[in-house]
Design a protein around this nucleic acid. Sequence first.
DNA 1: CGGTCAATTACCCAATCGGGTAAGTAGTCA
DNA 2: TGACTACTTACCCGATTGGGTAATTGACCG
Lengths: 223, 223
Amino acid sequence: MTGALLILATMATTILIYEDNTRLRQSLELLLGEGSGFHVSGTFPDCDNAEEQVARLEPDLVVMDIDMPGIGGIEGVRIIKSNFPDVKVIMHTVFDDDSRIFESICAGADGYLLKNTSPVKFIQSLHELADGGAPMSPFIAQKVFQHFRQQNKTTDSFNLTGREKEILEHLVKGNSYKMIADKCSVSVDTVKKHLQNIYHKLHVSCGTEAVAKALQHKIIRLD
Amino acid sequence: MTGALLILATMATTILIYEDNTRLRQSLELLLGEGSGFHVSGTFPDCDNAEEQVARLEPDLVVMDIDMPGIGGIEGVRIIKSNFPDVKVIMHTVFDDDSRIFESICAGADGYLLKNTSPVKFIQSLHELADGGAPMSPFIAQKVFQHFRQQNKTTDSFNLTGREKEILEHLVKGNSYKMIADKCSVSVDTVKKHLQNIYHKLHVSCGTEAVAKALQHKIIRLD
DNA sequence: CGGTCAATTACCCAATCGGGTAAGTAGTCA
DNA sequence: TGACTACTTACCCGATTGGGTAATTGACCG
């Protein structure tokens, strides 16, 4: 039985904590101590040696603050994830602004918790993280959804006609006037006329600008 | 005290359920019955009359299946959210493929739960939803994060030089060769030469195609 | 039935684009 | 030092682009 316990102890999910606030760092260490199912194998006030530390201590999870002296937490995530992609990293910060949220995610963060998260939720989230989930505070989840919708909504307007959208699509796909004319079975002059109208409607003066605007405003979608 | 209880009862979070599987529909209704803090004010096997039903019953939340006869759940969300943006809608489905997840979110869903969610988690998620969060199953959250990173990663490659990226950026922003030459303080011929090299590296043959490729592969980012 | 609008074609013309060729300078790396 | 690469400029030339103007057809609307 003692042997089994030892094995369990060895198998416990190990955690590194990066947090420059000493009191909070200690609180977290305490919270993730005995009986939580986790083992904190290291805590650090900055990310300056994160690569070496993660390499040496081989944690399963990393809890990462953002606002730290020296290398910030976002850069910290990038370093850890690019070298140890299997280590799960969760942000733990007061920041709830779009840019830091999205930069963190893009840097490779696997979760994002605000510091007002209750201890119970925090523990729960770390278990979810260990299980391959992507735990995040409700507010963050909502921001992510919002941003998602934003990115994929079509600005439409410019009220292009159906034919104009068709012509524009061909242009975006790299066709010359002549090629478009062929594909649409009309004369080159017609294509030219359509594009002239399109340029006016989009308030641009050349093809490249039109393509940029069409893609930027998702009038035309490239898959 | 009885008065207070009555007020609480009146204020309970009201829910509509759209689910074509009769047994599951009844199970959910039972789960969200007495003591859960919710009140199910209607359940329906399809979305065909969703607009009228939501208008009449004025729910706080809607639980929405995807695979239903007639109008599907994704279209259902779109209808509800476009007419009643304040009603929170959560998807509840077995589907975990990217396209259905993302279409649902873009259609306006406020959360996404898989049907293997435990009753406890389900209740918990609905509370989170009512509180303005965006609850989702761990697997979904992970997919969303993945997709996020995908969308914002720069494909790079094509190994354009710094100068070439600079020139390309100007092109994408709608500048003619001459304008680029001015902004970069070089001759038009130089610009032309650079673009010639760029076109080769991107495997395209004209400016519009280059712009499309640059934006598509996020070599250049337009904000 | 006349008016409006999308779609179509034609012609003119200047400017721009894009390919080819050639060659010079500067910096890095081995 | 010599190979290599990025960056630079120049010239030639044909094709493409884009603006202007004008006119015809068919559909839809009041």
